[in-house]
Design a protein around this nucleic acid. Structure first.
Length: 499
RNA sequence: GGCCCUAUCGUCUAGUGGUUAGGACACUGGGUUUUCAGUCCAGUAACCGGGGUUCGACUCCCCGUAGGGCUACCA
């Protein structure tokens, strides 16, 4: 039995996003399930669209998500945030591992040239000297006639001598000669048999005039050379798979098994893009989603265990993964569902972990470790993402200006409110500093509140927080500490005196 | 325009010829509750349309429709 080897082959043209991570996850889960190899290859054949920080960003995202790379581009010595670097400098810092390298296509140009030459010799590929403008016109002509826009093969009619002389003085591309009849078909692991008439196929360009291969050529050569056994990629590749198959055939190579994954759409069924909020993994990470939440969420988009379970860790996903459970219909990105996973996984964290993870988000407010831990405890069940930790707790650091009306609970007369505040003030003042715990505060204050909780607890909470919405008065007092709580209650009392 | 892919609650989905069409998110109502959250309980809500096949179609086939993709010297 041959080993399973799968890869992701991102193009460094932008930040790693939700869709890229889902493709990566699928490949990763399959590799782990089958005890195979998960490799990363960088497909940087489009020199015009390069984004220098894309590779470090991808590696950081995969690492964050917990998808360990076995082979290929495995790490980068430079940080994503180091934006001063250009692409060449970044490439110098990339760490590659494995026996089938290099794993960056721009470093494999010689290889593609060699294989392209082979096809040229076999007359399966031919040079084409047509300029872009001519090709555009040609396409429009075909389209006008209601025909599929194909290259008319005029350069195939050139004499050998002419080809030879033009090749040395003119820029040219290499095209694959595709069959004019018959069908090309393959069995997709997810969708079943897919078939297309060869006559519909355009002669694809395999080498560009700048000496770089096109995706179609490089992907085939590399997947073959790197012994890739299964290709899980986005469904946008379905239409070009027959071209790839024809290239495999031209070389006499055995193609890998293909499985075309759905793309994640936005809530309206359109392409997921920056307009729909964050889509890059860096964004989700920065907002404070836990990787567990993102992984669980995207795993369930287009895949499910066929029973009613919803919560899966990465290792459970590996155990349960099965290509038969992959869906064919494209799912939509539902932020509310993601938020739910976000909340769930934050709720699972221990207080120690949570305060450690929260610290960066509270950086601007405090670096007091004890206070951070308290805030984390109070906020744990209130947040979806770590970034939410600052919500409704600004009062801890500065009492907002509030109107004395806010202190009044329903129809309770202000004199009663004032008395109640004085009673709570006494309770709080009497607590020894060492007894100033959340549970003690709750016990003592609930006792004094008795039946009329509203008229005791509402004004107390407002006095402490100055806000309409906040954590409970016990939590507010606990966060503020005894002395600050006393100060704030006194202030509230004096506000009512001025009525 | 041509070709390819897809189609169950608003969303993610279970379902493979006979089910009260199940679960989750969201939503609504209620309990708990000092507010907001949280939590607990309950509820509303779906088989894209039309033809077949069949004793019987959400399920199989065909035709529409809708959405997505491809149709680049982009991937």
């Amino acid at each position: 039995m041959s080993t399973v080897r799968v890869r992701i082959a991102p193009s460094p043209t932008g930040l790693f996003h939700l869709g890229s991570l889902r493709t990566a996850l699928t490949n990763y889960l399959f590799a782990r399930k089958e005890k195979g190899v998960f490799l990363v290859r960088v497909e940087d054949t489009d020199q015009n669209r390069l984004v220098p920080e894309a590779i470090p960003d991808m590696l950081a995202s995969l690492k964050w998500a917990g998808l360990e790379i076995n082979e290929g581009v495995i790490d980068c010595r430079k940080n994503v945030n180091d934006s001063s670097l250009n692409y060449t400098e970044i490439k110098k810092n990339i760490i590659q591992k494995g026996n089938f390298g290099p794993y960056i296509q721009s470093e494999r140009l010689e290889i593609y040239r060699r294989y392209a030459d082979e096809l040229l010799r076999k007359k399966i590929a031919y040079p084409c000297f047509c300029r872009c403008e001519e090709l555009d016109k040609m396409r429009k002509r075909f389209l006008k006639k209601g025909l599929p826009p194909k290259y008319d093969r005029s350069c195939l009619k050139l004499s050998d001598a002419e080809v030879k002389s033009r090749m040395v003085k003119e820029p040219f591309v290499l095209r694959l000669k595709t069959p004019l009849s018959g069908k090309t078909s393959f069995v997709d692991l997810i969708r079943g048999k897919i078939e297309i008439e060869n006559e519909l196929l355009d002669d694809p360009i395999i080498m560009k005039s700048d000496g770089f291969p096109t995706y179609h050529f490089a992907v085939v050569v590399d997947d073959h050379l790197m012994k890739i056994s299964h290709v899980f990629r986005g469904e946008e590749w379905i239409s070009s798979t027959p071209k790839h198959l024809l290239i495999y055939k031209a070389f006499g190579w055995k193609p890998p098994v293909f499985g075309h994954l759905t793309n994640i759409l936005n809530m309206h069924g359109g392409k997921l893009s920056k307009r729909d909020g964050s889509v890059s993994i860096a964004d989700f990470r920065q907002k404070g989603f836990l990787p567990e939440a993102i992984i669980n969420f995207i795993a369930l988009l287009g895949w499910n265990p066929k029973d009613n379970r919803e919560l899966f860790s990465l290792s459970e996903l590996i155990k349960e993964f099965d290509t038969k459970k992959l869906n064919k219909a494209a799912p939509r990105f539902d932020q509310q569902r993601l938020d739910w996973f976000g909340k769930y996984y934050l709720g699972q964290k221990s207080l120690e972990e949570l305060s450690f993870l929260s610290a960066p988000y509270l950086q601007k407010l405090t670096d007091d470790q004890t206070l951070i831990k308290k805030i984390a405890q109070v906020q744990q069940s209130r947040m979806h993402v770590l970034g939410d930790i600052t919500q409704d707790i600004d009062f801890v650091f500065k009492l907002p200006n509030y109107s004395s009306d806010l202190l009044i609970w329903k129809d309770t007369p202000s004199q009663i409110i004032k008395e109640n505040l004085r009673s709570t003030l006494k309770i709080i003042s009497d607590i020894k500093l060492s007894d100033f715990s959340l549970s003690n505060l709750e016990k003592l204050l609930m006792t004094i509140a008795g039946e009329n909780r509203g008229s005791f607890l509402w004004p107390l909470r407002v006095a402490l927080s100055g806000k309409q919405k906040s954590p409970s008065p016990f939590e507010c007092a606990w966060l503020l500490g005894r002395d600050e709580s006393i100060r704030r209650i006194e202030k509230a009392v004096s506000k009512i005196s001025n009525f």
